[in-house]
């Protein structure tokens, strides 16, 4: 009996290890990575700091709180981004309703004018509030926008190459991701342009296990042509906090939901 149990355990463990080692379908890997990077828990909150360094070494900073709610797993999501620093953007609020089957709805609240500004649907691969990160890096690029190909599997990473279905929409010719085989977090993404130059790199510098989810807590995007980079640091992260749908409405633009933005005790 004992022997049989032991054999079963070994078999399960082996199957589990084998499972982790034998993913060969690029789309499945991309989906797992997407889940790990953007859909951990049913919702989440985090405070974020960015330090933006230009090619001359001059620095700017941004600080904001992000609230996220998944409307549907691996599909529609809602984001609320409330800026607290620097002082000229304090009180600025972004509201994003991300859709899989149509263009995202995005609003920006400018407190100086009490203006709820709608942002047009394009405008995704441009700087996010002056950082080297793009809007799309923050809310995720729909994986149906690219063709995915598994080019290499080593002990640590799945290496995938992604080619855009509509090259006119993007500035890259293709990009390559290194996806951690255990956590499925994309640990490095490198973008090449039509000239074949490597011009942009996004890399994870630090991860932590939070609420059972492997979570990126520091990442960096570098402009490899002109120099300069942005470090993004996440803290006070919580998952499954029970964010209601009402938090992601026009009300939160003018009156940010203080109870949900409040920093939790660590």
């Amino acid at each position: 009996m004992i022997k049989k149990t032991f054999v079963t355990i070994v078999a399960i463990a082996a199957a589990g290890m084998a499972g982790a080692d034998t993913l060969t379908d690029a789309n499945e890997i991309v989906e797992r990575a997407n889940q790990a990077a953007y859909y951990a828990g049913a919702d989440g909150r985090s405070e974020v700091r960015m330090i933006i360094t230009d090619a001359q070494g001059r620095q700017q900073r941004r600080q904001f709180t992000v609230l996220r709610r998944d409307v549907k797993e691996l599909a529609d999501q809602q984001f609320l981004v409330v800026f607290s620093q620097p002082s000229d953007v304090r009180g600025t609020v972004f509201l994003v309703n991300k859709h899989i089957d149509r263009d995202d709805d995005r609003w920006l609240y400018l407190p100086g004018l009490d203006l709820v500004k709608r942002i047009s649907a394009g405008d995704k691969r441009t700087s996010f509030v002056g950082a080297h990160f793009f809007y799309e890096d923050v809310s995720g690029r729909p994986h149906s926008d690219d063709e995915h190909e598994l080019v290499e599997t080593d002990d640590t990473f799945y290496v995938l190459r992604h080619t855009p279905k509509d090259p006119s929409n993007v500035e890259f010719e293709h990009y390559t991701t290194w996806i951690d085989k255990q956590s499925f977090l994309p640990m490095k993404i490198e973008y090449k342009n039509a000239a074949g130059d490597l011009y942009r790199r996004v890399e994870v510098l630090k991860t932590e296990l939070i609420g059972g989810h492997p979570t990126v807590t520091t990442s960096r995007v570098s402009d490899l042509l002109t120099g300069g980079n942005t470090d993004m640091q996440f803290r006070f992260i919580q998952y499954d906090v029970g964010l209601p749908e009402q938090v992601f409405t026009e009300r939160s633009l003018r009156s940010p939901p203080r109870d949900w933005l409040k920093r939790p005790a660590e």
């Binding site: 405070e47 700091r49 330090i51 620095q59 900073r61 600080q63 607290s84 620093q85 620097p86 002082s87 000229d88 304090r90 470090d231 640091q233 803290r235 409040k262 920093r263």
Partner: peptide, 24 residues
């Protein structure tokens, strides 16, 4: 704290430490 280049763990701008004054 934002003027400090050290982004150590304790350098986050605190909440609830009274009034924050800003402007231009």
């Amino acid at each position: 704290p934002w003027a400090d280049d050290d982004w150590g763990d304790d350098e986050w701008t605190d909440e609830d430490t009274g009034l924050t004054w800003s402007g231009f």
